[in-house]
Design a protein around this nucleic acid. Sequence first.
DNA 1: ATCTGATATTGCGCGCCGCGCACTATATGC
DNA 2: GCATATAGTGCGCGGCGCGCAATATCAGAT
Lengths: 200, 200
Amino acid sequence: MDLRTRNKQATREAISRAALRLAVEQGPGGLALVRVHDIAEAAGVSPRTYNNYFSSREEAICAFQADQSKRAGQALRARPADEPLDQAVIAAMIELYTDPEPDRAGLRMIMSTPELEGEALKAFSMAEGPLAEAIAMRTGTDPARDLFPAVMAAAVAGAVRVAGRHWLEAGNAESFAAVLRRALSCVVPADVRNLTTKDR
Amino acid sequence: MDLRTRNKQATREAISRAALRLAVEQGPGGLALVRVHDIAEAAGVSPRTYNNYFSSREEAICAFQADQSKRAGQALRARPADEPLDQAVIAAMIELYTDPEPDRAGLRMIMSTPELEGEALKAFSMAEGPLAEAIAMRTGTDPARDLFPAVMAAAVAGAVRVAGRHWLEAGNAESFAAVLRRALSCVVPADVRNLTTKDR
DNA sequence: ATCTGATATTGCGCGCCGCGCACTATATGC
DNA sequence: GCATATAGTGCGCGGCGCGCAATATCAGAT
């Protein structure tokens, strides 16, 4: 990859990290106190530059989650091709979202701050497109006709979100991986054939 | 209900309707041209009053979808108690979202305008809470321990969203009810017992 | 090592937005 | 018909997003 591009990504990440850190410092109640000026300063960049990378504080704060979700497709595609869909999806999502174990404070910030709700949903739902594509590949279905890939992708993304919420509310009782597996088991059918055929 | 409250709701709806109408007029590309001033004027209200009801144009535009989603719980609860979960959910969602058949232009506006993406996701996801509660009632599960109700609710809301997108992209080939049924069939298990037991 | 062209960063300024506050208009319930 | 809670409004402030043009920075060729 181009060095120039790498520097850009570094700047982007610096801004994003600064934004999330400052937001976490204020807690879910004080998002209004996180000024663009502060984010830019903490990232060592001018306010105008901050706005070249993100068009809202919310977007900057949730950027990490968004980027992670975008990798959902490749995570599933990385699973062995002969693995059953349900196992592949569960393994892929656990790998994607628990490497490393999520930051509690950060996740709590983006998931329980009303002003961030829309952006957080956007961040998680960014997994849907790539995921649907990967699922379609695996099941050999045509995304234009079959609803199954897109619906399943949305269900998986939703399960991840619910798992996150539950993991935040419960204490350290369970690892996120365990919660995630439980959640995904509710929507990823062990045998998917009867559903796809019904859907054709 | 109090008359005063009804007038408030009427005002709220007037603003919301005006906002959506103006947005549709500009199309998904020109949301920036929909000024608060115009919305307020079209609703016969001062800009300041508009802001007493909605804290952003996006929220005003998506208010109808949001309100509809909020009724998901009662829609499911209105189904006969002895009806199997899968049939009840499908029937309830079809009743809720196809009475009347959705407005194509309006739905297209909120679902394919990038600036509205977050708010639209919020609107659809507002069904999840009430829906999860109703599902928990039906299945007799404890939402605090079992993930199933919340996960299923998220999956259903996601399926509705995907169905909407598909219905917009396809022409008049299918009624929305038909698409909705197909989408929901992908995630609502015909026999839910094996999943709930696995989840306990 | 130097130059050069591309590109990232920045400063400035405009228009709009969300909202707190205080005031006014309204009509509900007595 | 009146008192009073409540909805609507005008004003003003601070902040934000972004277009534009100038500047700084750096990769790559010579």
